[in-house]
Design a protein around this nucleic acid. Structure first.
Lengths: 267, 267
DNA sequence: ACAAAAGTGTTTATAATACACCCATGA
DNA sequence: TCATGGGTGTATTATAAACACTTTTGT
């Protein structure tokens, strides 16, 4: 319900006239999408969340409404693009949240005073909402997070440092993480989370973050390389007082071939 | 969108007056649930589907609308109960279907002439619908399938003998099966699909149906028994000209303990 | 006695785990 | 030269897979 604001802002920049429209004509009523956009930085998983302005307490997941002539998936793609500038790295629906108690009426909405937002808009946003959760894995360095007219800021926050989130958004995040954890054995997940070139150590730290357990260095390296989906680059990374690690990148052709035939990486 | 009829029927039996209500007041607009109810009979996976009456061509998954003051999950539970009489054996949400092209307008709806169904009801049902898919695993013998005012019959149909299904219901079935296939390594799925007592052979046939591949008899038996979640019963099954197989049942206490600690059965 | 299918055993191959060793590097 | 972390090797254990052997039963 709340995410509408961010969408309104985008509309305002492009076609301000749309704001005079009744939401009921524009959007599928009562249905929204929420995106858990996950990145990896400083050896930690982080997600992109929006800090509301002082009138409204709490942070929120990037989300939005579904246009009447828009696929549900497309709505999520649009939200991802609007918040990060990124197009379709990895975006998957994981669950639809439809409990009655998720949508406690947000009194804060009544306080909002923004040009073009009418009491009818507020009324519409205060209806019961069912929200479909999408999870996206992105390279933080490729993102250009865009704050919103209603939010003081948009930020990457480590999973273990999350502030209060509105509604059931914390629950949505938990479900997203558990979804990724289950998927990791069937998807070489690093391909969208890491930069183009990375070390095996970095990939291992990513896996350890997702699985929440330590892995054996030697075994991890051997199992990964055995998948035969990496290119090893001759230029080593320099810096530490130790042997320089190789840099790797995904061989997209081999990677896709492996995905097609299916595989299992147990860790 | 079509499933509404079945729900109307139930309402008619209980509180016929509700039929005079506007659907917009009763239901969350544009949102439905569809249930893929899976059973196991004659060594085959079967699903419960509804054959429409002659005015309307095609079969449909059991489904329904979501009441305005009802959890999404509760709507699925209600549909399962109404169609089978069964309460909560195994019911899980697996995906929400929201593509525009899934809801091609069903001209057949206009032909329908049923007491109490007004053009406004038809109009409402012809709006764009987004549907959340639930999958349920049930013991066919415990089910009491109930056909509907609009359907000639309700039947268990083997997966490889499915007739034409309306809308994207075939696609929904495929996704449900693939969901179960992925879950099978983490859930002793037989507990709700098989009768109280069963042979290892039957359990194996069930697994082979879901996994769509043959399994080694000896290895399957040993791996299953090693899970230590079964009770072996001394009364053997008789009938064939061969050694009589033991009957097993799930030890619910051990089963639940295993589920809590998590396990993986690779087959 | 025999066929058929159950129950159990055995062998082999493959993969997971733990840890050891040597190597390259910068201070 | 020494501490550090990278790359690779190896022994051990656990699991999967293939298949063989024995048992029980009705005909």
């Amino acid at each position: 319900m709340t995410q509408s604001f961010f969408y309104i802002f985008v509309i305002m920049k492009n076609k301000p006239s749309l704001l005079t429209m009744n939401f009921s004509e524009l959007f599928v009523p009562g249905l929204s999408v929420d995106c858990v956009i996950i990145g990896f930085e400083d050896h930690k998983l982080k997600i992109l969340i929006l800090k509301w302005n002082s009138d409204i307490d709490g942070w929120a997941l990037p989300g939005g409404f579904v246009l009447k002539n828009e696929d549900l998936d497309k709505a999520a793609i649009r939200v991802l693009k609007e918040r990060t500038g990124v197009e379709l790295p990895f975006l998957e629906q994981f669950k639809t949240f439809g409990n009655l108690d998720r949508g406690k009426r947000n009194n804060a909405l009544e306080k909002v005073k923004i040009d073009g937002i009418t009491p009818e808009h507020i009324e519409w946003m205060n209806q019961r909402f069912i929200s479909t959760g999408y999870v996206s894995l992105v390279d933080i360095k490729k993102c250009d997070p865009r704050p919103d007219i209603l939010s003081e800021k948009i930020d990457w926050i480590a999973l273990d440092e999350l502030p209060n989130l509105i509604l059931d958004h914390k629950h949505i995040v938990k479900k997203a993480i558990s979804f990724i954890k289950n998927q990791i054995n069937y998807l070489p997940i690093g391909i969208t989370l890491l930069p183009e070139r990375f070390t095996m150590k970095e990939l291992q730290l990513l896996y350890e973050s997702i699985l929440e357990k330590k892995l054996d260095r030697g075994n991890f390296q051997r199992k990964m390389l055995k998948l035969d989906i990496f290119n090893r680059h001759e230029k080593h990374l320099e810096g530490g007082a130790h042997k320089a690690p190789y840099l790797y990148s995904f061989d997209h052709e081999k990677y896709n071939k492996l995905l097609e035939q299916g595989f299992s990486f147990n860790s």
